[in-house]
Deep mutational scan, measured.
Amino acid sequence: LQLFIKTLTGKTSTVEMEPSDTIENLKAKIQDKEGIPPDQQRLIFAGKQLEDGRTLSDYNIQKESTLHLVL
């Protein structure tokens, strides 16, 4: 599924993920695209901070969801 990652600067990146992927996997993919180390990334979806060990489906993240990346 395609996700949009929006940064505080207003920049939006697109990443392709599976519902079974963990937040950790997602942060690794963001690191590949943006060069931001996972330990500096905080991802927010629906007002919640996402935890590394959980999966996208745990948070009911659907295709074309927008996640907010806070550093």
Rank of each mutant, 00 (worst) to 15 (best):
F4M: 07
D21S: 09
K6V: 15
D39Q: 12
K29A: 10
T9Q: 10
L56V: 04
T7M: 15
Q62F: 09
A28T: 10
L1Q: 04
Q40M: 11
I5T: 01
E18D: 12
L43F: 07
S65V: 07
I23K: 01
K48Y: 10
Q41R: 01
S20H: 12
K6E: 08
D39A: 12
G35K: 06
A46C: 08
I23V: 12
K6I: 14
E34T: 15
I61S: 02
T14M: 14
L69Y: 02
S13E: 07
Q40G: 06
D52K: 04
Q40A: 08
G35H: 07
L26I: 07
H68P: 01
I61R: 01
E16H: 13
P38M: 15
V15P: 00
I5K: 00
R42S: 11
I36H: 11
L3C: 02
Q62I: 12
K33Q: 13
K6H: 10
K11T: 10
I30M: 04
E16K: 08
T22Y: 07
R54N: 10
A46V: 06
G35F: 04
P19Y: 09
I36F: 12
V70S: 09
A46R: 14
S65C: 05
Q31E: 10
L69C: 02
P19D: 09
Q62E: 11
I23C: 02
Q31C: 09
I23S: 00
R54Y: 13
T55C: 04
P37N: 07
L43M: 03
Q2Y: 11
K27H: 02
P19F: 09
Q49P: 11
N60A: 08
E64T: 08
Q49R: 08
F4N: 08
T9L: 10
L56Q: 01
I36M: 04
S65M: 08
I61L: 07
Q31M: 13
Q41N: 02
S57N: 10
K63S: 15
G35L: 04
N60S: 11
Y59I: 02
P37T: 05
I36T: 06
K6G: 03
I30Q: 00
Q41S: 04
L26H: 00
L56S: 00
V70A: 07
T14K: 10
K27D: 00
E18Y: 14
L69S: 00
T66Y: 06
